[in-house]
Computed example of a mutant assay.
Amino acid sequence: MRTLLFVPGDSPRKFARARQSLADALILDLEDSVAAEEKPRARQETAAMLREARGAQKLFVRVNAFDTGLTARDLAAVLPYAPDGIALPKCGGPEQVERLSHMLDALEAAAGLEPGHTRILAIATETADSLFNLGRYKGCSPRLWGLMWGAEDLIASLGATTNREGGALLDSFRLARTLCLAGAAAAGVVAVDTVATTIDDLDAVAEEARAARRDGFRAKGIIHPKHVEVVNAAFRPTEGEIAWARRIVEAFAGDRTGVVKIDGQMIDKPHLRAAEKILESAALQ
């Protein structure tokens, strides 16, 4: 999954539009995009969306954070309809992933779902304390699919007034981004880049997505359908990258030394792993 498109959980109209996009996954949102008084209706609408015939898109649900007291109600409303995953906002650390995993164990059993069916996407940089726990997610739950960094809620948590200046991330937010990337790599899960908030500037969205892929992110959150194809293209390996990766894989196929020479350069196993990831990504396009 490269593109994860957020959809308000109380809007069947926007859901219908999102299903027509080429997003790899939709995240039906019960949190920030839904007003407090609308959350009971949003649970009902989201459950109805999950009951519709499924296509190739994965369907996640972003529940409300644990500190709201609404998480259990959100999960009880949607788990009977087998979402592919749960996005947990304001995740403070691996203990919250473990807590969510235990809740999913019980709800899956009650719904007759296969144990472990529901994956977890932790949105893991939205509070100041969460930044100190990003290296601790390894092994916390086999359900954990990815770590996503978020820049908007972190503004309030840090007491900042903005997260960007002149279009560039400020230091505190670059730190959160980097720690999330490293934490995901250490845990062996997918690193997911935050959403682009410039709705109409598709060039800026494309540049942000290319930088995310360059740095090691394997997916990106999206808040508008018009961003989907731009981000998909940015995460698609180029023909040159694919050709390079094939040469490396083929060179190592007949070599047992762990090092090969290509175009005068010494290529070793880390290059092979990078090449294999490129070919894996290309196969999923």
Rank of each mutant, 00 (worst) to 15 (best):
A176E: 04
A128T: 09
R174S: 15
L158E: 02
L170A: 09
K138R: 15
E114M: 11
L169F: 15
S130R: 09
V195S: 10
G146R: 07
L107E: 06
G112C: 09
C180G: 03
Y137Q: 05
D129V: 14
E126Y: 06
L134V: 00
M148D: 07
A176G: 04
A111E: 07
W149D: 06
L169Q: 07
L107Y: 10
G183T: 05
A128R: 13
T118Q: 05
C140A: 08
L154S: 06
T162P: 10
L134F: 00
G188W: 05
T198Y: 08
A184M: 09
A109Q: 13
G167D: 01
G183E: 01
M148S: 12
G112M: 12
R164G: 04
R143M: 05
A124I: 04
G135Y: 12
I120Y: 01
A156P: 07
A151M: 10
W149G: 02
G112S: 10
V189Q: 03
L175S: 14
T161I: 14
F132G: 13
A168I: 06
D171A: 15
T127E: 12
L175W: 15
A187R: 01
R119T: 07
L169V: 03
G166E: 06
G135K: 05
A122P: 00
A196K: 12
L131N: 00
L154R: 00
T197Q: 14
P142N: 04
T198Q: 14
A124C: 15
G139W: 03
F132K: 14
A185Y: 09
D171Q: 15
G146L: 00
G150F: 08
T127Y: 08
R119I: 02
A128F: 13
A168G: 03
G159D: 11
F132N: 11
W145D: 11
A106T: 12
D193G: 08
N163S: 12
A110R: 13
A106Y: 12
R174C: 15
N163T: 05
D153L: 05
L113A: 10
T178F: 11
A187I: 07
D105W: 07
D193T: 01
V189R: 00
T118C: 11
C140I: 03
S130A: 15
G188M: 11
A176P: 07
R164N: 07
S130N: 09
W145F: 11
